[in-house]
Write a protein that binds this DNA or RNA. Structure first.
Lengths: 342, 342
DNA sequence: GATACAGACTAAATCGTTTTAGCCAGGAAA
DNA sequence: TTTCCTGGCTAAAACGATTTAGTCTGTATC
């Protein structure tokens, strides 16, 4: 069984292709098509089960009503939730979302942008990797709006972004730890040049300095990005084995690292918070349900999705009006959710 | 800056559009295009940064190199992992994936199928909802292959599916509980007519019967699908408050229910496994890291994704050969991962 | 009686590819 | 000299929509 096209309907209804098109696009009245013809065409279309071919439509109009979403890894809870919120929001504006994962690989990200561009998506929401600014500029030059989420390029204000104030978030967590009397605060982060992580790290250093606490090099563990699970566990284990002596608190700078940390804490049977206070950037079911419950800096994931989608739709609407005037980066707040672990 | 098309290249290279097309599709040799022309065209294409328009290509060839993936909810860990494994696998075959979530809503699922169909995806991998068989038949009639995952229609063998043997999986868990001496085993499931859940429930009943244990109605809790988090918590709490007296073990039939259960167990400070043994269908980071660790029936998620993708690609390859001969449903085994909770 | 205009449509170009069916020149075979 | 290849390309149709610029009829206006 073949798909029915507009001309099949035209033939069956005894009218021209144009007439059918007008009827299907609610332009019939404007085009002064008579009531009877409209009804006839609608009837035939329904009867034959007509569904417009979006490829043809997109080719002709240049609009696919599709947006590309590039995240780091769709199987990660944070990105999966983000993706769902963007999908839901997109539906409200009658857009469809195509997702893909970069695995934080620069080349893969570039490939994905190319692939989406070839598929003529109307706009992009991107969790960028390093060195992606030029590729994004190319999209913008083609008049395709791009919104960055979760990460940003501080030196490129022309690329709008929606994310939390990472510096402020980590500062909040650090202040809470210090207020509770912890002084030997360790940090676990991931090796990257991306600004959002540097902001988090900077907050750690600044808060320590502000309180006159020396920053011990041995308390900061930087996990290389593509070290496997086992290797990363070992590294964290080395750091946390000092719990109760060298360190009295630990701040995990990402969700994934926090889960890794829990695994180590469990294995080493570290008493939280007696031997070690724990706080993690970004929430997760585990942190809420672990015993003791783990304090986190919570990102408003849904809101990031909503705001990013909104920003994109705005630009899609105003597309053609040369440069969209308002390019103010959106910064949401990441709040401390204090639980039993501190 | 506009996108470059094949005819821009043709003009600049001083050849015809056809020639450019042949060169870009590695048909140049077959079409006996001379070495010099090939090189010239390739050079110009590279120089202008040519990227073929997939809409146009798809319109002409009828193939979009895209497959549609419909899951229940992309923000759920199980489906997110599944999606990632399918995305990775698809890339190996040079296909792109478009995902969407049904939220287990029949009408939404239908809409999604329509939307993907309008976008001319080449094939589908679907986590079906109830009453979707007819819509899937329509896809098959249009010669679009469909593979079901996670769920299936027992009365429709013509729709191939890839999933675990749910009956066997639950049986394994039940046998393990009984072997450990538990007799008052409760069950928490979700209200649905879908066969995969009925299989799980049936296994529970059959194993009890086989061991001569009476099935107590009060020990089976069926949560309505769209009851909110709070309501579901209450229901589970009511059941689990009997821990140590009315019941000595509980089997959660889905991941989500298990997490809900953990929340209740934590709140009621139930001692696991002393007062209550716990087992859950489908693994999750929480179960591995909770104290005590929770036993699960683990589904080979990655393998489901791989096998489903493989089955789809097979059918895509053999498309046009009328009916693809082998339609044997793929059934993987779900193994018991025994942890501290039983 | 010519002009205008509204009403009800349709023809044809167009979007960017792929692909079939040729065209043309030159050399070999008959 | 005609016929037949063959090598090296190109023209044009087709995919399924949208959209601009008409075409006709018939009626109202001057």
């Amino acid at each position: 069984m073949k798909k029915v096209s507009i001309s099949d309907i035209a033939r069956k209804a005894g009218v021209s292709v144009s007439t059918v098109s007008f009827v299907m696009n609610d332009k019939a009245v404007k085009m002064r098509i008579s009531r009877e013809v409209i009804e006839k065409v609608e009837h035939v279309a329904r009867e034959m089960g007509y569904r417009p071919n979006q490829l043809a439509r997109g080719l002709r109009t240049g609009k696919t009503k599709t947006i590309g979403l590039i995240v780091e890894n769709i199987s990660n809870a944070f990105f999966a939730t983000l993706a769902k919120s963007i999908e839901d929001e997109a539906k409200r504006y009658d857009y469809k979302v195509v997702y893909c994962s970069t695995d934080n690989d620069e080349d893969k990200a570039r490939d994905l942008i190319n692939m989406l561009s070839q598929r003529q998506v109307d706009g992009y929401i991107i969790t960028p990797t390093l060195n992606l600014a030029d590729d994004i500029h190319k999209l913008q030059a083609e008049n395709k709006p791009v919104i960055l989420i979760d990460r940003y390029f501080p030196q490129h204000e022309e690329i709008p972004s929606v994310l939390v104030d990472n510096y402020e978030g980590v500062s909040r967590g650090m202040e809470a730890l210090i207020a509770k009397g912890y002084r030997k605060i360790a940090l676990v982060t991931i090796e990257t040049e991306m600004a959002h992580m540097k902001d988090r790290l900077r907050a750690y250093c600044d808060v320590l300095k502000r309180h006159g606490i020396a920053e011990e090099h041995s308390r900061v563990k930087i996990i290389p990005y593509n070290s496997d699970h086992e290797k990363a566990l070992e590294e964290v284990e080395r750091l946390l084995s000092g719990a109760g002596t060298d360190i009295d608190a630990v701040f995990f700078l990402t969700n994934y690292l926090g889960v890794l940390g829990i695994e180590v804490i469990k294995k080493l049977r570290i008493k939280v918070p007696e031997q070690l206070a724990v706080i993690c950037f970004d929430d997760n079911d585990i942190f809420r349900l672990y015993t003791p419950t783990i304090s986190v800096i919570r990102q408003p994931v849904e809101e990031i999705g909503k705001k990013a989608m909104f920003a994109l739709i705005e630009r899609l609407r105003h597309s053609g009006e040369e440069t969209y005037p308002v390019n103010i980066p959106v910064r949401l707040t990441a709040d401390l959710v204090a639980r039993e672990s501190i």
